[in-house]
Amino acid sequence: MARPINLRIWRGNKNGGDFHTVTVDANEGEVVLDVIHRVQATQLPDLAVRWNCKAGKCGSCSMEINGKPRLACMTRMNTFAEGETITVTPLRAFPVIRDLVTDVSFNYKKAMEIPSYAPPANLKPGEARMEQIDVERSQEFRKCIECFLCQDTCHVIRDHEENKKSFAGPRFFIRIAELDMHPLDTLRNRKRTAQESHGLGMCNITKCCTEVCPEHIRITDNAIIPMKERVVDVKYDPVRWLGSKIRKREDIS
């Protein structure tokens, strides 16, 4: 059964823009992205929106719906009240390209700043062996679909453009944690660089990244806080520091 709904869509580009309110039908079982597509098909043919899978797995349709960073393809229409006007805007932490499409290249730059997985030099392809319990923690972080909703909501950069140069953001803290917890990774200074180059200390663990992650990755509890504790081990704990000097190693088996 179709019912009419009011959609307030932000349209514009980096020079300016405004809200346009349209009334459009929504059918049983539809999601916000369906309705935006209907608007595109029937009323605003040049409305720009990015999407790919419509299954919550490609991370393309990130936008802000009633002020909350969300995937448009995973936000069901029946979660809104009858007669409610739904406001849709592009992500507000990144430069806008057009309408609902933003330039997320900040995230690709940050990804490149993180040294990749470094297996032991003598390990030949196909020879890597590890136990399930040793990789389990890292596997949670592999669920990431790179929607960058966590990056968008993180106040460190959302509210402070100037911090972008020194802050990698939650998506990349889980990447660093994934590698630092990896049983075969040999790079031993990930904790130190997390704090000194990637801005882990800027995070004040207020958990908005965790709140918006569509993959329900427990970013703060399972990656950021454990990394903060590991940083304390190597940088701020005199007892551990002394122990590591005596045993001549920074890491622990």
Binding site: N66, G67, T89, R92, I157, D159, E161
Partner: peptide
């Protein structure tokens, strides 16, 4: 300044959460 930074979508409201 953040959400009103240059090149971001020009939206006045501090938040659009309802």
């Amino acid at each position: 300044a953040g959400v009103h930074a240059e090149h971001r979508a020009h939206i006045q409201e501090r938040t659009l959460r309802t």
